[in-house]
């Protein structure tokens, strides 16, 4: 139920864009990932290696228009030469049932360490990206996306 749009069973459905809210309310037993779950995934990948802020541009809507299809663009600053490139980028969402979203592996032939995908977001949460450079250094970035049941026209 959680990640699907809610199909109204009544003839008259609720107002004010209640879809997302009801979807959440109808699946109260789903265990969501947490910041700790994201940290655990990262520990599996990189141990206790330090991560610096910067280099990563995480482009996400401030407010999701549709929690089932949230555009995510990640762009890591790098010359992308044989000697200096971005090897991998991992993206996590700390409020989804499972924290992993996508892992990219780039090469110098990629030209740009940038990629776009569409993701599901079950609720308002943080999206976290970690980039591994060819020399082994790590960078991280975080952005919050609000998943709302809707405003009121205007």
């Amino acid at each position: 139920m959680q990640l699907r749009s809610w199909t109204p069973s009544r003839r008259e459905t609720m107002g004010l864009g209640l879809t997302a809210l009801l979807a959440a309310a109808l699946a109260p037993c789903l265990v969501m990932a947490t910041e700790e779950a994201v940290a655990a995934e990262l520990k599996k990948l990189y141990g206790d290696k330090p991560m610096a802020d910067g280099k990563i541009k995480l482009d996400l809507p401030e407010i999701a228009e549709n929690g089932l299809v949230v555009p995510l663009n990640v762009d890591v600053e790098s010359p992308m030469t044989d000697g200096d490139y971005v090897k991998a980028v991992h993206v996590f969402a700390d409020g989804n049932p499972l924290p992993q979203v996508v892992t990219y592996k780039f090469t110098p032939q990629s030209g740009k360490a940038a990629a776009s995908v569409r993701m599901r977001l079950a609720q308002t949460q943080n999206v976290i990206a970690v980039a591994e450079m060819s020399n082994g250094t790590l960078y991280t970035a975080k952005a919050q996306v609000k998943v709302t049941i809707g405003g009121c026209g205007g």
């Binding site: 089932l68 989804n96 992993q100 996508v102 990219y104 780039f106 990629s110 990629a115 995908v117 569409r118």
Partner: peptide, 17 residues
């Protein structure tokens, strides 16, 4: 270029690179 997709990737996956 490679992408590992997990369950949070939307239906009808789009990938640009």
């Amino acid at each position: 270029f490679e992408a590992d997709w997990f369950t949070s990737v939307s239906a009808n996956p789009y990938q640009a690179f």
